[in-house]
């Protein structure tokens, strides 16, 4: 008997033990589009077979035709840009205010006692119910619209950022204390990155809230914007144009939400979660 014989016989290469995966698994390429495309397919099929009558919901191809008409005859692009500008302005103010308030109230007990209460009260009053008041204060112009959108998108940013901030592991604060860094660096190196996941979640809500606000405020005395277009179409009974508006809102919302998630994946590369 020789020593070589006692070695394990070479088996087929690359055999491994793999545990059953409990998480959602790997990312599927283009999965991003699958849901919306499926939705479109169902809609098309329903309209083609007559299951969805045009009185209930315009067929996709008629929506495309209406879209073309609006584009050439009624300055659809102008409407879209005007709506986007409103939403973006309101959202930026709301996000900035929500983020700053969340950090202040998250880091100081005094700040919390002053800020947190009013925001919780504000949460329970629907912003849309405040519109009459804002009209009295700011008139029916652009200002009122931007303030409304800002307020509506501030709340989710505040709530989720605050929650994320307070959820940061206290041991990191302890570490910061032992290496003797100041408040500003503590905020920069520990508070902001630690609260970022919460902030991004808040951002997803804020983006959709801002569109919600857009729909409502554009019904008041707007001369341009998707909401204005829908209001006019409603008066003239043009269902197809209304659906064009709704589709545009949907596309806005979906793209904005996807953008936030994509950014989230990039800036949260330090995390290992079920997302990856």
């Amino acid at each position: 008997m020789t020593i070589t014989e006692t070695r394990p016989r070479a088996v087929a290469p690359d055999i491994r033990v793999v545990r059953r995966r409990l998480g959602p698994g790997r990312r599927i390429p283009y999965a991003f589009w699958a849901g919306p495309v499926l939705l479109l397919a169902v809609w098309s099929a329903g309209s083609a077979t007559g299951l969805i009558s045009p009185a209930i919901l315009t067929a996709p191809w008629d929506v495309v035709v209406a879209f073309g008409e609006q584009w050439t005859d009624h300055d659809l692009l102008g409407n879209i840009l005007s709506s986007l500008q409103r939403a973006a302005l309101g959202l930026s103010f709301g996000v900035a205010a929500g983020g700053v308030l969340a950090v202040v109230s998250g880091l100081s007990r005094l700040g919390e006692s002053i800020i947190d209460g009013p925001i919780q009260i504000k949460r329970s009053v629907p912003t849309l119910a405040l519109i009459p008041l804002f009209i009295a204060w700011f008139g029916i112009g652009q200002e009122m619209k931007i303030v409304t959108i800002a307020l509506i998108s501030m709340v989710p940013i505040y709530v989720h950022t605050h929650n994320g901030l307070r959820g940061i592991d206290g041991r990191y604060a302890e570490l910061a204390e032992t290496i003797g860094i100041g408040r500003r660096e503590f905020v920069r190196h520990i508070v902001l990155p630690g609260a970022l996941p919460g902030f991004l979640l808040g951002m997803r809500f804020a983006v959709t809230s801002s569109l919600l606000g857009l729909v409502v405020v554009e019904q008041y005395n707007a001369t341009a914007g998707i909401g204005h277009m829908i209001t006019l179409a409603e008066q003239y009974g043009q269902t197809d144009v209304i659906v064009v508006g709704l589709v545009i809102y949907g596309v806005f919302g979906y793209c904005a939400d996807s953008a936030v998630r994509l950014i989230g994946r990039k800036v949260l590369a330090w995390r290992r979660t079920l997302e990856d």
């Binding site: 041991r171 990191y172 570490l175 190196h189 990155p193 970022l196 330090w270």
Partner: peptide, 11 residues
């Protein structure tokens, strides 16, 4: 030096 390394996961 803590018992856990206490490295900031995001840095």
């Amino acid at each position: 030096v803590f018992q856990d390394s206490r490295l900031l996961p995001w840095r």
